[in-house]
Amino acid sequence: MPRILTRENAIRWAPFMVLLALIVLFTAINPSFLSQRNFARIAIAAAPALMVAVGVTFIIVMGSIDLSMEGVVSLTAVLFCFLMLALGGTLASGGWVAIPVILAVGAAIGLVNGFIHVKLKIPSFMASLALGFVGTGAAILLTGGDIVKFNDPTFRALLTWRILGFPLMVYVAGLCLVLAWFIQSHTRLGRYFYAVGGGEELAHASGVRVQHVRMAGFSLAGFFYAIAAILQVAKLGQAESVTGSNFMFMSITSVVVGGVALWGGIGGVWNTLVGVLIVAVINNGMVVIGLPDFLQAAVLGLLVIIAVILSTDRRAVAFVK
């Protein structure tokens, strides 16, 4: 009889159990937590965060890290608003062109990130952190520190048009998640991510062009950050240089809490979905049961530490920096 309570199984199902436990806990304290309206609120908060987290999932699966999301989301959000306004200010009048353009811009920024990391041989956390600073700086430069309003009702339908009580952007995020899952599980690139994460030298020896895979991964991440930026603009109706703030801490916490190992090779986008929901449920639940919101950063901090400690196989690690 196969053992059910193995370490692997525990790790695989723990995030999901935590999510269920949290929902039960918050509902027990305040039953209004378990309402369709509140779930819609959680889903709206989680949709852009999910896109950022899915992007960084690919990077973490490769065993690297990407800390550029705040800058990239801010920059693409600001660019998106400017481009939309330049193209007539409404989706119908030709502004839709801005969407593919911004997705391409996101992918291009990611590619630059990957290029700096791979070709200049700079550890990814630092290369991406620096590029994130550049992105935020560029967003400040473009806006001059101001807020760019963008309020096309057709575009804002992403937030206002509800199907079964959930706004359109939740379904868009869901579709993008399926796309990410497809890339992860049914394409060669997706398999290469796991090969690189599982053992870079082995992957290289078996003929995987590791450098190309890494650059493609960062580019893909940039693409998803751009989706997050567009959803964020739809949610807020504006963009500024701080549109992307908090995404770094939140997305990495989500990915790690969902069970994607920081060492690479383990976990995937479904883990990320669970992780994002855990973080969103905690953030929302703390407000619903009346805890002050200043606790959120500390709770996320503790959460990510616990998740990393639990997911680390100490026998396999010689030392960490």
Binding site: I65, L67, F125, M248, F249, I252, V256, L262, F294, L295, Q296, A297, A298, V299, L300, G301, L302, V304, I305, V308, I309, T312, R314, V317, V320, K321
Partner: peptide, 20 residues
């Protein structure tokens, strides 16, 4: 060092505690 959490994550998390 003892819990094998990479320093960029552990310090990010401690930074979150500071912020709170």
């Amino acid at each position: 060092t003892r819990m094998y959490v990479p320093s960029f994550i552990s310090t990010l998390a401690v930074g979150g505690i500071c912020f709170s």
